[in-house]
C-alpha cells in the first residue's frame, strides 16, 4: 500500500493542535518555528524566546521591524498584549528551572531511550550549542519535530545516537512526517501513522522496535 509523507507544515499543524490552552512553550530554531504559524486561534498559548521574551507574537508587517525585538533565530518578531521582557539569566531560569511546559526541538537523531542529538554533527563543523542543552534538560516535556529518515534514507530514530548528545533521556515524543512516536519506559509507541503506512513498515524503516499505540488517536 502506498502512503504520502506529511509536509513540514502538516507536522507543525499536528504539533500545534496538541499544545493545550495556557501552555508556556519554546519553539526551537529551524523547523519548530513553523509551529507558531499553526497555533489554534481559540487558545491562549504563551511562546517563550530564550533572549528574554514571553508572549512572543508573529513577524511584524513589512516596514514595522524593530531590531530590538527579535527571536532566538535573530528574526524580527512582535510582542502580544500581556507579554514581558526580561534578561537572559531569568530567561534561562525559566528554561532550566522546569517552568516551560513544552519545548519543541529539531533533531539529527533521537535514541530509543530519548537521548537527543541536535547541536553538532561532529567532525569539521564549527560547534554551536546556543540554548539547546538548557531546553533539553529543563522543559517539562521535550517534543522533537523531524523527518523520520535522513535525506540518504537512514533512520533518525536510532538504538544509540552517533552524533554528539544534547541531553540524555530527555525526549518524550517525536513528531515525524510519518507518525507520532512516544518515548515510554516500555519502549517506543507509534500512533497517528500516515494513511496507508502499516506499523510493521514504519518499524522496518526505523530499524528499532516500535509498538503500535493501543488507543489509536485520530490524526
Amino acid at each position: 500500500m502506498s502512503y504520502v509523507k506529511l509536509t513540514r507544515d502538516q507536522i507543525a499543524a499536528r504539533i500545534a493542535r496538541d499544545i493545550p490552552e495556557g501552555a508556556y512553550v519554546n519553539l526551537g530554531i529551524g523547523m519548530p518555528t513553523l509551529v507558531g504559524n499553526h497555533l489554534p486561534k481559540d487558545r491562549e498559548i504563551i511562546l517563550h524566546s530564550e533572549n528574554g521574551i514571553l508572549g512572543m507574537g508573529p513577524a511584524p508587517a513589512p516596514g514595522l521591524e524593530d531590531l530590538d525585538l527579535i527571536n532566538a533565530g535573530k528574526e524580527p518578531v512582535t510582542l502580544l498584549t500581556g507579554g514581558a521582557y526580561f534578561h537572559h539569566t531569568d530567561s534561562f531560569a525559566m528554561m532550566r528551572g522546569g517552568h516551560l511546559d513544552i519545548a519543541v526541538l529539531g533533531a539529527f537523531q533521537v535514541s530509543v531511550s530519548g537521548d537527543l542529538a541536535n547541536w553538532h554533527t561532529g567532525g569539521d563543523a564549527i560547534p554551536a550549542v546556543g540554548g539547546a542543552m538548557d531546553l533539553a534538560v529543563g522543559a517539562k516535556s521535550v517534543w522533537v519535530m523531524m523527518e523520520q529518515l535522513t535525506k540518504g534514507g537512514e533512520s533518525k530514530i536510532v538504538e544509540r545516537c552517533t552524533y554528539p548528545l544534547t541531553g540524555i533521556a530527555v525526549v518524550k515524543r517525536i513528531y515525524t512526517d510519518l507518525a507520532v512516536i512516544d518515548v515510554t519506559p516500555g519502549g517506543l509507541v507509534a500512533s497517528r501513522l500516515v494513511p496507508g503506512l502499516a506499523c510493521e513498515e514504519l518499524q522496518r524503516l526505523s530499524g528499532v522496535p516500535l509498538s503500535p499505540s493501543a488507543a489509536r488517536a485520530a490524526a
Binding site: 539569566t89 534561562f92 532550566r96 550549542v129 546556543g130 540554548g131 542543552m133 534538560v137
Partner: peptide, 24 residues
C-alpha cells in the same frame, strides 16, 4: 558554553557564588 550556563556563570561571578551544579 551552553547559553544558560554562560549566563549563569556570569551571574555567579556577580553574586559572589563560588561555583554551582547544573544539569545542563
Amino acid at each position: 558554553v551552553p547559553q544558560g550556563t554562560l549566563s549563569e556563570r556570569m551571574r555567579a561571578a556577580g553574586a559572589g557564588i563560588g561555583a554551582f551544579y547544573t544539569p545542563t
